[in-house]
Write a protein that binds this DNA or RNA. Sequence first.
DNA 1: TCACCATATTGGTCTGGACAAATATTGATG
DNA 2: CATCAATATTTGTCCAGACCAATATGGTGA
Lengths: 270, 270
Amino acid sequence: MAPRSIDRESDLKSEQSGPQTPGGEAPRYVRIQRILQDRIAQGRYAVGSLMPTEIELSEEFATSRFTIRSALRNLMQDGYVERRQGMGTRVLTANPTTGYYQSFESLQELFQIAVETYLVVLGSEDVVLDAEIAKRIGGDDGPVRAGERWILFESVRWTAPGGRPLSFIQSYVPERFRDHTSAFADHNGPFFDLLETRSQETIIEAQQEIRAMPMPQHVARAIGLREGALSLQLTRRYLTARGILIASVNWHPADKMIYRTRVRRRQSRD
Amino acid sequence: MAPRSIDRESDLKSEQSGPQTPGGEAPRYVRIQRILQDRIAQGRYAVGSLMPTEIELSEEFATSRFTIRSALRNLMQDGYVERRQGMGTRVLTANPTTGYYQSFESLQELFQIAVETYLVVLGSEDVVLDAEIAKRIGGDDGPVRAGERWILFESVRWTAPGGRPLSFIQSYVPERFRDHTSAFADHNGPFFDLLETRSQETIIEAQQEIRAMPMPQHVARAIGLREGALSLQLTRRYLTARGILIASVNWHPADKMIYRTRVRRRQSRD
DNA sequence: TCACCATATTGGTCTGGACAAATATTGATG
DNA sequence: CATCAATATTTGTCCAGACCAATATGGTGA
């Protein structure tokens, strides 16, 4: 059996008193958890080594195995240690990555696609990709090659029927989804949503690129702006296990669009 | 006390056998957890209502309170229920958010701040915020008011000493951190990092806004472009428990900057 | 030497019980 | 009717003990 850090000194005042005297502060398993955490931080329990066993710890802290297990369970959930039956409790790291995260219920939420808007499909055509468009659709190292045939939809999103134009959208769909595109004309929500449902392929990843650029002529004309007007361009790719489900390029008038992100530190539970 | 869903039917084969017969499959608390999960999904335990108490469940499943608690703890960790001492176990949702997520080790990673670049501080001055700047710094409903005094740093980030300019940066720092700003001039990394370390305040949230806009004259001049050149403007706010740690506004030449995001679907644990 | 098996170790599951602490309910009181 | 105190309810913490399942170890035999 692998060597094990042995430690018998007691950091916890023994508190001769009855079973659950809280000592005025945190419960016992929390205090023990903190002590163990400190020992890991100070290197007393080296990263990669095995910690004392539950029995040893319960003897050291003069407590039950139950209480030690509660402390160790929290350490495990916080990413400090790994526990394996028959093997023991191994120290993984002294600085568990808390990090930051951003999470969403849906991709609509992520991409801040307003639901209360109206989509008008201008038309669609088959296109053969040139090198630039292929790169735009597939990303820098994507699987999309120049010369492939894709279906291009162009549409405009409005605040309301007869309201203000919000954005111009080009959507590129692989040929294998041709049968599913008939529903695009009547659809108001984002196409990726419709396509994910109808194709039965689950989106596992989404990518987005944001650029500032002047609006090309035919884009500007479609939403009633002059050529070269300032725009925020959002390129999005939706990937399934089988490849790209759909890619879109959105132009927003610069003065009407702000893209917002908010991330929080992952809670570290103590 | 609030009404409580009562349920006495047993879904678990009673397995007369000894204490820990695993029955060939998952441990008992896992099977009970799944049953409870199903009941929530089927609406038998309505969202918003209280589940049966631990005692009731332990009677129904003919098991100990310990086992029920293990099952309920998992349900809580998965976001199905909320538990409060003295109140009970309340059903939160039947569809805990699987959703999408994006996570980072550090905020540098999130904001794609290149490490291999060089920062030159042009200067700093005390400023009294006007309404527009206050809103820019604090956000739409932020705690920052016009008339407050902040410290403004202006700097330029370069590819290399004597290389190409990458971006122009304005950093707004609250007056209470004045003592820590002396180190800004010699610092090459992002200021929020330095400030977080020195001020001992932990960043709990970061916000970012992306706009496309023409470059103001003095910004353009600082990085050698003509006034009105297209730029991608990134406004970032770093928040601690005590308020805003630092806010910055970054201007990037439009043709040199693409902001990329990638998110993955969250793995669903079961 | 290598493969295999018995054995010890160690965390995983579970019982049954006890008291503490937080919350809700009820009843008394003004 | 409103307020406060007493009481009941419910989850939180903790104990002592038991057996199970997974892993590591050491010895045995081919």
